[in-house]
Structure formats: structure tokens, C-alpha cells
Computed example of a mutant assay.
Amino acid sequence: MNVSIAEAKAKLSELISRAQAGEEIVLTRHGKIAARLVPPLGENLLPRIGALKGKIWIADDFDELGPEWDEYVK
């Protein structure tokens, strides 16, 4: 839906409700796109802290260098 900025000022609350319902609103100034009101992102898109607990395993010696690195560590 395209809406002029002047019209958007008068109907901002309605436009926000429509965007929350999933509609994309394009705001125009002199017929050119100036901004977009887009639906909010889903609430569960970001991973939660601890979501991979018990699913990742790191070896006890993962940070120990093998003998092939001896000459580089000197």
C-alpha cells in the first residue's frame, strides 16, 4: 500500500496497526518512496542463550598444539 507522508501523519495509528497485521506500507514524498513500515520480525528469530546446551561438545585438548607446531611456538 502506498501512502503519502501527509496522509500518513493523519493515519499513523491505523498504518501501524496494518503493519503489525502483516501489511507493508510504503510512504511516499512527491511520488517517490521515502520510507517503509514493515511487519515486525517474529519474536523467536533470535537464538536463546543456552539453546545448544548439551548439543555441542569440545574436546578437552582442543587448544593443545601437536608436535608439528613446535618450531612455530619457539
Rank of each mutant, 00 (worst) to 15 (best):
M1D: 11
M1R: 13
N2Y: 03
N2G: 06
V3M: 07
S4Q: 01
S4E: 03
S4N: 03
I5V: 12
I5T: 05
I5Y: 06
I5K: 03
A6T: 01
A6R: 00
A6H: 03
E7M: 00
E7C: 07
A8C: 05
K9F: 04
K9T: 04
A10W: 04
K11I: 07
L12K: 10
L12Y: 10
S13D: 11
S13G: 14
S13P: 02
S13Q: 11
E14S: 15
E14C: 09
L15R: 00
L15F: 01
I16N: 07
S17N: 14
S17R: 13
R18W: 00
Q20D: 14
Q20A: 15
Q20H: 14
A21L: 05
A21W: 00
A21Q: 08
E23I: 07
E23P: 05
E23M: 05
E24C: 02
I25N: 04
V26Y: 03
T28R: 02
T28N: 04
T28E: 06
R29A: 12
H30T: 12
H30D: 13
G31F: 04
G31A: 06
G31E: 00
I33L: 01
I33A: 00
A34Q: 10
A35F: 06
A35M: 03
A35D: 02
A35S: 02
A35H: 00
R36Y: 11
R36L: 10
L37C: 02
L37Y: 06
V38T: 12
P39H: 08
P39F: 12
P40T: 04
L41A: 11
L41Q: 08
L41P: 01
G42Q: 02
E43R: 07
E43K: 09
N44M: 03
N44L: 08
L45S: 14
L45C: 13
L45H: 15
L46M: 07
L46F: 08
L46Q: 04
L46Y: 06
L46H: 01
P47Q: 14
P47N: 12
P47H: 14
R48L: 13
R48M: 13
I49P: 04
G50Q: 12
G50V: 10
A51H: 03
A51S: 06
A51P: 02
L52T: 11
L52Q: 10
K53E: 12
K55I: 04
K55A: 09
I56R: 04
A59R: 12
A59S: 14
A59N: 11
D60E: 08
D61E: 01
D61Q: 05
F62Y: 12
F62K: 08
D63W: 10
D63S: 15
D63I: 09
E64I: 15
G66W: 01
G66M: 00
G66K: 08
G66Y: 04
P67A: 12
E68S: 15
E68V: 13
W69G: 01
D70R: 15
D70W: 11
Y72Q: 12
V73A: 11
V73H: 09
V73Q: 12
K74L: 08
K74Q: 10
K74C: 02
